[in-house]
């Protein structure tokens, strides 16, 4: 009943978005129920707003190419790696209150303790967080956010979303982002400039760290948009499970040789012609 309600709500939201916000572009139409395989692929991609998302993606790529990427490149080339690590550490340390809150909301007392310990050590002996001293002692970082908390609470991911400038997300994680912003005590410091600088620094830090990887992924993709969508989904599932390989990673069944329709020579054996 609750599930039906949730599905109904999700459908209503998608329908509204399709009709209003993305009107001129439209939405992907679900394949008919008579075609279960197409339907499964459609549901796995979880992207009913795909036409709209692809438009945003192209806009993001353009913004990246002309602004973010060059800035990240200069930053990466001009600033030595140890300094960039310090920036990265400092920004991560600022996230500690949000991580702590979400660890608590997920009932993860262990990680809450770890977060408090890391924050205390790194903010003092680690010179306001620029040195990850706790990490040096083996108390390594692990990010948490409200999107993950919602997932732990059993909220589904909702449709995939490509957010302008912010990149890949989904309905649940977009709500999570907003919640993280409003639950962060640093939001209420009253220094507007600090907020903007922090946001800018964070984007450049992330972009510079993934510079080569993103280049490689784009170069070797036949569909860059779909690759990013797949990577985002898998990465979030891993983050939600805290990378726990104690829980089985979601490995799909890879058909074995014995299910193969072909023998060694690539000859057709027992397959009805389907196309």
């Amino acid at each position: 009943m609750r599930r039906a309600l949730r599905n109904g709500l999700a459908r209503a939201v998608v329908a509204l978005l399709c009709a209003g916000v993305v009107g001129p572009v439209g939405c992907a139409t679900a394949p008919p129920a008579g075609d279960p395989e197409s339907r499964e692929a459609f549901e796995r991609a979880n992207d009913p707003l795909e036409p709209f998302n692809r438009v945003v993606f192209v806009a993001n790529i353009v913004a990246d190419r002309f602004v973010l990427k060059p800035v990240a490149y200069v930053y990466k080339e001009a600033v030595p790696a140890p300094i960039r690590d310090m920036v990265s550490n400092f920004l991560h340390n600022l996230r500690s209150p949000v991580i702590l809150l979400n660890a608590l909301l997920q009932g993860d007392i262990d990680h809450a303790g770890t977060t408090v310990l890391r924050f205390s050590v790194n903010s003092t002996l680690g010179f306001a967080g620029i040195v990850d001293l706790a990490g040096e002692f083996g108390i390594v970082r692990r990010d948490e956010d409200f999107g993950q908390t919602l997932a732990v609470w059993g909220v589904g991911e909702g449709p995939y979303l490509m957010l302008p400038l912010l990149g890949p997300s989904n309905a649940r994680d977009a709500v999570g982002r907003a919640a993280d912003y409003f639950s962060d005590p640093l939001t209420y410091l009253g220094y507007e400039k600090f907020g903007y600088s922090r946001f800018g620094a964070k984007i450049i830090d992330v972009r510079a760290r993934n510079y080569d990887l993103l280049n490689d992924v784009e170069r070797t993709s036949v569909d860059f948009y779909a690759t990013i969508r797949s990577l985002y989904g898998q990465n979030r599932r891993d983050a939600i499970a805290n990378g726990a390989e104690a829980g089985l990673p979601p490995l799909p069944d890879i058909p074995g040789e014995e299910d193969d329709f072909e023998d060694e020579e690539g000859q057709e054996r027992d397959r009805p012609p389907t196309g």
Binding site: A41, R44, A45, S221, V222, D223, Y225, A226, T227, R229, S230, L231, Q234, N235, R237, D238, A239, A241, G243, P249, P250, L251, P252, I254, E257
Partner: peptide, 29 residues
């Protein structure tokens, strides 16, 4: 185990499966 010996069928880096990623982008293409 495949025929003569052990063989790799997937590599999963930080929870990201190479086979799944390729399957997803090929399906989209």
């Amino acid at each position: 185990q495949a025929g003569a010996g052990l063989r790799i069928v997937d590599v999963i880096v930080d929870g990201i499966s190479m086979s799944v990623t390729q399957r997803d982008q090929f399906a989209a293409a």
